[in-house]
Design a protein around this nucleic acid. Sequence first.
RNA 1: GCUCCGAUGGUGUAGCCCGGUCAAGCAUACGAGCCUCUCGAGCUCGGGGCCCGGGUUCAAAUCCCGGUCGGAGCACCA
Length: 575
Amino acid sequence: MNDIIREIVERLALENAVSFNGVAKAEAVLGKLLGSNPELRSRIKEIILLVREITEKVNSLTLTQQKELLSKLGPVKPVEKPLKTIGIPELPKAEGFTKITLRFAPNPDGPLTLGNARPAILCDYYARKTGGKLILRFEDTSPSVKPPLREAYEWVVEDLKWLGIEPDEIYYQSDRLPIYYDYATSFLEKGFAYVCLCKPGDFRSYEREGKPCPHRDHDPALNIRLWEKMLDGTMKPGEAVVRVKTDMEHPNPAVRDWPALRIDIAEHPRISGFRVWPLYNWSCAIDDYEMKISHVIRGKEHLTNEVRQSYVFQYLNAPQPVSIHIGRVGLENSVLSKSKIMKGFSQGFYTGLDDPRLGTLRALRRRGFKPEVIRRVILDMGLKITEAMVKWENLYAYNREVVDWNSERYYFVKDPFKLVVKNMTKRVEARLSRHPSRPELGFRPIVIEPHEGMVELLVSAEDVCNTMPGSRLRLISLFNVEIESVDRETKLVNSFFKGMEVPEKSAGIKLIQWVLPEDAVETWVLMPDASYAKGLGESSLKRLPPGRMVQLVRFGFCVVEKVSENFVELVFSHP
RNA sequence: GCUCCGAUGGUGUAGCCCGGUCAAGCAUACGAGCCUCUCGAGCUCGGGGCCCGGGUUCAAAUCCCGGUCGGAGCACCA
């Protein structure tokens, strides 16, 4: 037995030494040994001595000797690596539930942002993966503080659809007021809740001190009478609120007897005639119960709400859904806050809800990001509760992967300069490749006809305005020129024809794109900062349908947005 | 102030529950080279990380304690 162990240790020590420059570490050898032979742990004292001894011996050999010895031991035994689980973890078991049901529950007060996409995509992912159910629930129960927007309900559905998410069921909390009332009545009758008449500041004092307020011990009959006064209009907003009895000595003051329903007489875009509205924790707990939600995936700002709502489930004698709290998502240099977005939008600061500066899903869609790319970055982040900042670079890389193969190449010159090429006598037929990796897509031929030994072309300012006379440029797929002079005032560059042959890379000659004046169309590109890059593009851009992704050579991937006889507008996607 | 939570390369993560095959995997970014008539794509190679300090243990990214930093909540908002 000891001989066998000795042999294994020798091999491990040699392997370790050989992979680390001739020096083996006893710890690592021991770790590997115990990892694959856990039964040796009971003999640890004895094994350690053995491992140290052998490791020292191995380390006293030269690397060459070690290699020799190792090769004598025969072919290396394949190391069995534990299977790595791919993707994100399984959903935790939800005790007391037979079917996996998740809900995405936004407030319809704006379009969805990348931040909302995180819970939405995760819920959808798990619902689909497990054959469960996904519910979309509009949480629109605060007509005065977070007034829902009539149009936003539709925006949410559209944005989800774009992400590939189609909920199995849709609910509107504003349709369900009677349900929340019924449970409230029942809770009041059973003494699980009470009508509190404290002024908000007064209650806060009780809460801080952990003492019950004077209304906590009202008997159910009185509570019901007060409740009816809340409903029938006798009481005004702010005069009373229904509180769920939790524990006035709960260590977290935020959990103590939280408010469940209050009077709010502001208008609601969907319904009218109601003056008592549930607060988040009430409608949410009741709905999660009614809809048999098994798992709740939501932002970590709801961490204490899970504790608050646990009292409702206890009173209902029902299992509480498993809560998974996830961190907020940030997007570099972008606005993700819905209230800021809506404010800036209504003040006209943004051109629309798809303004490229915004982190809305519609802005990302407009910029040509594919839904699977959004899904990928979200699923990449997993179920962690930590915050995550999404880098544009990351989105770019993923999107390029999806988009590159199907993006035809076109030439666009920003801030055009006129390039006059002299000593040009031949007629040239340029063949511009539609896609360098896909020759089967063919070419777009452009014929260049010199007049009196000259040709005029258009090139980008940034490619020529700092070039020195005598330097050379290669016009891609066309010919080479030598710069004679550059006049930035008149945006005119004079040059000589310098041959057709493609220059060697080593010559360090810059390759630039160009447009023929007779074949140019006014082209603007909306940039991520909402400015426009203005210039001229080749006329074949006009034949593209809006929504098509192209690559403007040496400029970047762009989405065609508007096309007319003499104007093309695109939206910049990424380099 | 009170109550919670978290920390793995530049970024996003895997591993942590249940300590050892982790001398830490992946992606992206970055650097070098190859390829390419784009600053795109592709290929090859490379550098880079367990917040700090103690403790437990033969062994700590993993367990315990303390600290630091960061975040969330403390609404008659969601």
